[in-house]
């Protein structure tokens, strides 16, 4: 068994150009089982495009994505059985109650006992009281929480979260981080997360991939990256890269 086959995510040399603008320029990412990885970078660094290519929602011009041994786009459906995705900016289906929407997603993910999976996932993030609320009647923070619950329903091998705590109060955000750490520890799920909150990244991840101008500019532990750039923490690194990206 090669290292590549063992990794839950292997993205090799991804490139994407939109109307002559090179958004992603040869990005390679691997995530090992159970590993927690942060994908960081200033606005326009190519994070969202990369993430959407990893999820099969955008096709790369060149390069390949393999999730749990399933190559995209041909085996997207099989690959997505092992992936949970949530984004802070994504709403949930209108006109469905939270329990119904989660049941639908559980069904799509192939969960056998939908009801039990929904109850367990709601309890994990302490939001059982939202179960009978309509999705479109939730606050943005509550919606984000339900989105994260949705992503964990089927005990995925890879959890992909895009700015998951951006709209949450600090206490709720902390609860989410704690819940995510517990989830990853108990299920062995790997985590790939983007965030603009450097403290969150330092708390949640073991390794950080910094992107700037569509390329990987650093790939190491948060402490090692901070030390390499001559800072005490990731905040300084982020500010420096954002400044350099603006000048480029």
């Amino acid at each position: 068994m090669t290292q590549q086959a063992a990794d839950v995510l292997v993205a090799h040399e991804l490139r994407k150009t939109f109307k002559k603008v090179e958004a992603v320029r040869g990005i390679s990412i691997t995530v090992a089982p159970g590993e927690r990885v942060g994908l960081l970078g200033p606005n326009g660094a190519g994070k969202t495009t990369t993430l959407l290519m990893l999820l099969g929602a955008i096709l790369p011009d060149t390069g390949s994505v393999t999730i749990v041994g399933h190559r995209l786009p041909r085996h997207r459906s099989r690959a997505m059985e092992s992936v949970g995705f949530a984004a802070g900016y994504l709403p949930l289906p209108d006109r469905l109650k939270v329990r119904e929407a989660l049941g639908v997603f559980a069904g799509w993910y192939g969960v056998r006992n939908e009801k039990q999976a929904v109850n367990e996932a709601l309890e994990r993030f302490e939001i059982t009281q939202l179960a009978d609320r309509l999705c479109n009647a939730l606050s943005s923070g509550q919606r984000t929480l339900v989105g994260i619950v949705k992503a964990t329903l089927h005990n995925p091998k890879l959890l992909v979260l895009d700015e998951p705590t951006a709209s949450l109060d600090p206490d709720v955000a902390l609860r989410v981080r704690t819940g995510l750490l517990q989830f990853c520890a108990s299920t062995g799920a790997a985590l790939l997360i983007t965030s603009h909150d450097m403290r969150e990244v330092e708390m949640l991840t073991e390794r950080v991939i910094f992107l700037a101008n569509g390329q990987v500019v650093a790939n190491d532990t948060p402490a090692a990256i901070a030390a390499t750039f001559g800072y005490d923490d990731l905040e300084g690194v982020f500010m420096q890269l954002a400044d350099e990206a603006r000048r480029a």
Partner: peptide, 16 residues
């Protein structure tokens, strides 16, 4: 219905 509720990306990232 998926585009009106901006749910399309959620659907596209499931095995459906």
């Amino acid at each position: 219905e998926e585009t009106w509720s901006r749910n399309l990306l959620n659907v596209l990232t499931t095995p459906v």
